Amino acid sequence: MVIGLLEWTGERIIPKLLKPTNGMLLEHIARYYFATPYIRGRVLDIACGTGYGCHMVSKERKRELTHLVGVDIDAETIYYANREYNHQKITYQTGNAIDPELPEKLGQFDTILSFETIEHVEDDLLFMDNLYRMLKPGGTLVLSSPFGRGRGKQTSEPFHIHQLTPEEFEELFVRFSKVEIYYQRGPTFEKPREDVRYFIGVAVCTK
């Protein structure tokens, strides 16, 4: 089952099959640790992958969390998440991040996590509209994305449709009442410095 999953799910992270020092694994885990303080109430992890992140934040914030919904487009991945990262406060289910009816299907959330997802969808503005509709007033969205040449331009990553520029990334959040932009460098997060080139942006947004 796991071997088959690795053969065709591209960038999905399976911690049990990676060395603890794997750079991609450390970056992914770091994003969930970064988001942990924002976890409260009803939570959505959109494109949750194999479920390790859902399980992490549910254990860390078990008092503040009432329910977490982990959604991924791939049924086999959801099957794996249910088997390996089951938790009494987590529900895993299949769903398409750019389904216009997704907000009606899932309802609203106090916190939404979206890590390394927007570069995989053709219509990033529809994706953002879904997230905005699913976030409760006063709720928090934590979203990350790698930077690149820009919307509609080819990338060197086989599983990425496009990668936004830092300017395009910031423009995604104009509707939110408060936005803080951070930059990820390996497992660390910081405000921008002039002498450093950043490849991943992380936005913390309040509706």
Rank of each mutant, 00 (worst) to 15 (best):
residue 52 Y to R: 07
residue 53 G to L: 05
residue 53 G to H: 06
residue 53 G to W: 08
residue 54 C to Q: 10
residue 54 C to R: 09
residue 54 C to T: 10
residue 55 H to L: 10
residue 56 M to S: 13
residue 57 V to H: 05
residue 57 V to R: 06
residue 57 V to Q: 05
residue 58 S to T: 15
residue 58 S to A: 14
residue 59 K to H: 13
residue 59 K to N: 14
residue 60 E to R: 15
residue 61 R to G: 02
residue 62 K to A: 15
residue 62 K to T: 14
residue 64 E to N: 09
residue 64 E to M: 06
residue 64 E to T: 03
residue 64 E to I: 01
residue 65 L to P: 01
residue 67 H to W: 15
residue 70 G to R: 14
residue 71 V to Y: 12
residue 71 V to H: 11
residue 73 I to K: 13
residue 74 D to E: 12
residue 74 D to Y: 14
residue 75 A to F: 13
residue 75 A to I: 12
residue 76 E to R: 13
residue 76 E to Y: 12
residue 76 E to D: 14
residue 77 T to C: 10
residue 77 T to K: 09
residue 79 Y to E: 14
residue 80 Y to C: 06
residue 80 Y to S: 04
residue 80 Y to F: 15
residue 82 N to C: 14
residue 84 E to W: 06
residue 85 Y to I: 05
residue 86 N to S: 15
residue 86 N to W: 12
residue 87 H to N: 12
residue 88 Q to V: 14
residue 89 K to T: 07
residue 89 K to E: 08
residue 90 I to S: 01
residue 90 I to Q: 04
residue 90 I to R: 00
residue 90 I to G: 03
residue 90 I to T: 06
residue 91 T to W: 07
residue 91 T to R: 12
residue 91 T to P: 09
residue 93 Q to R: 13
residue 93 Q to C: 14
residue 93 Q to T: 13
residue 94 T to R: 11
residue 94 T to Y: 11
residue 94 T to W: 08
residue 96 N to K: 11
residue 96 N to M: 04
residue 97 A to M: 09
residue 97 A to V: 08
residue 97 A to S: 13
residue 98 I to R: 03
residue 99 D to Y: 08
residue 100 P to E: 05
residue 100 P to G: 07
residue 101 E to D: 14
residue 102 L to D: 05
residue 102 L to M: 13
residue 102 L to S: 04
residue 103 P to M: 01
residue 103 P to N: 02
residue 104 E to G: 10
residue 104 E to W: 13
residue 104 E to T: 10
residue 105 K to L: 14
residue 106 L to W: 05
residue 106 L to Q: 06
residue 107 G to V: 05
residue 107 G to M: 05
residue 108 Q to I: 12
residue 108 Q to V: 11
residue 109 F to M: 10
residue 111 T to P: 00
residue 112 I to C: 04
residue 112 I to R: 04
residue 113 L to Q: 03
residue 113 L to M: 02
residue 114 S to L: 07
residue 114 S to W: 05
residue 116 E to A: 00
residue 116 E to G: 02
residue 116 E to V: 03
residue 117 T to F: 08
residue 117 T to Y: 09
residue 118 I to F: 07
residue 119 E to K: 05
residue 119 E to C: 11
residue 120 H to E: 03
residue 120 H to V: 01
residue 120 H to Y: 02
residue 121 V to F: 00
residue 121 V to M: 01
residue 121 V to I: 01
residue 121 V to A: 00
residue 121 V to T: 03
residue 121 V to N: 02
residue 121 V to C: 00
residue 122 E to Q: 13
residue 123 D to K: 05
residue 123 D to E: 06
residue 123 D to A: 07
residue 123 D to Y: 07
residue 124 D to I: 04
residue 125 L to P: 03
residue 126 L to E: 10
residue 127 F to C: 10
residue 127 F to E: 10
residue 127 F to W: 08
residue 129 D to S: 11
residue 130 N to K: 04
residue 131 L to S: 03
residue 132 Y to W: 13
residue 132 Y to D: 10
residue 133 R to N: 09
residue 134 M to T: 03
residue 135 L to F: 03
residue 135 L to N: 00
residue 135 L to K: 01
residue 138 G to S: 06
residue 139 G to C: 01
residue 139 G to T: 09
residue 140 T to N: 00
residue 140 T to R: 02
residue 140 T to E: 01
residue 141 L to G: 00
residue 141 L to H: 02
